[in-house]
Amino acid sequence: MSDIGFYLIIFAVSIAALWILLYFVPIGLWFSALVSGVRVSLLQLILMRWRKVPPGVIVQALIEGTKAGIQLFRNDLEAHYLAGGRVSKVVHALVSAQKANIPLDFKMATAIDLAGRDVFEAVQMSVNPKVINTPPVTAVAKDGIQLIAKARVTVRANIKQLVGGAGEETVLARVGEGIVSSIGSADSHKKVLENPDFISRVVLEKGLDAGTAFEILSIDIADIDIGKNIGAVLQMDQANADKNIAQAKAEERRAMAVALEQEMKAKAQEARAKVILAEADVPKAMAEAFRNGNLGIMDYYKFKNIEADTSMRENIANKDKGKKQ
């Protein structure tokens, strides 16, 4: 191996050793903290590497806090990072809150951050309120006219309620419920169209932001459209239902009448059959009367004459009835 190759190997090994040394002993980072007025020892920066904590994040947070006049402690920042928190977001939020005169301490900021909320965005929302557009809310006034309303809800973050407070979905749901209630209590849809601020006033009086992470500043009705005449539709449906019920009852009565007629016909046929059977026994009874001497020949002739006269009268009556029809 030539001398040049040997020196190249020595140079590469030296560069690698220097990089490893500077990685575990961040002298540049220590010097930046020193000139920024942050007291952190070089040993602690080395131990941060072993504790799997990036020294750059902690030192940068300490420098930002010190320049803003906020007292921060290295152990607290490391603990928050190891707990899964976002150290830079927390420090940004603390600085912004201090500039805006919003009461926010390190403990509350870290709690909000660990709860999954963006604490820096919450502070910004406290300074600059956010406008939330509600989806179309459908409600019916007392006169049966359907109204479709859209509202703009202006909210700002409530720092004290960010931990455990309900989110935007709850606020929108409560506002929608308040709009439905206020429109439903109106005697006429015309009154709602004439005074849309009536809805905002009634909804704001309900205190819908209780238990949420926001404070409702105003509720403005952006648009109101007229929908269907629900009252007329319901009356038509009721009329159709009454008609169907009446038709069903009429059909039931007709079926009962048909059944009664069939029953009467069956009874008439049964009676007619009994008469025919009884008439069949008449000749037998007459023959028996002749044998016993209870009936004479003259009596028989009189019976036949009466039977013929009756048959003639029935035929004449049937012919007269046919002519009248």
Rank of each mutant, 00 (worst) to 15 (best):
R117W: 03
R117M: 03
D118C: 04
V119M: 06
V119S: 07
V119E: 03
F120A: 14
E121G: 12
E121L: 12
A122D: 13
Q124H: 13
M125Y: 05
S126V: 00
V127M: 14
N128E: 07
P129M: 06
P129C: 08
K130L: 13
K130A: 06
K130F: 11
V131G: 05
V131Q: 11
V131K: 13
V131E: 10
I132T: 01
T134C: 11
T134Y: 06
P135A: 06
T138Y: 08
T138R: 15
T138W: 01
V140P: 04
V140D: 04
A141W: 05
A141P: 01
K142N: 08
K142G: 04
K142P: 00
K142T: 04
K142H: 03
D143P: 04
G144A: 11
G144F: 03
G144N: 04
I145D: 01
I145K: 09
I145F: 05
Q146R: 09
L147P: 06
A149E: 00
K150D: 09
K150N: 13
R152G: 02
R152L: 12
R152T: 06
V153I: 15
V153T: 13
R156Y: 07
N158V: 02
N158R: 14
I159N: 09
I159W: 00
L162V: 13
G164M: 02
G165Q: 03
A166G: 14
G167Q: 12
E168D: 11
V171K: 09
A173K: 15
A173G: 15
R174G: 10
R174D: 02
G176A: 08
E177W: 02
G178N: 03
G178W: 02
I179A: 08
V180G: 07
V180A: 12
I183H: 01
S185L: 07
A186S: 14
D187L: 14
S188A: 14
S188G: 06
H189N: 10
K191Y: 11
L193N: 11
E194I: 13
N195C: 00
P196T: 09
P196W: 13
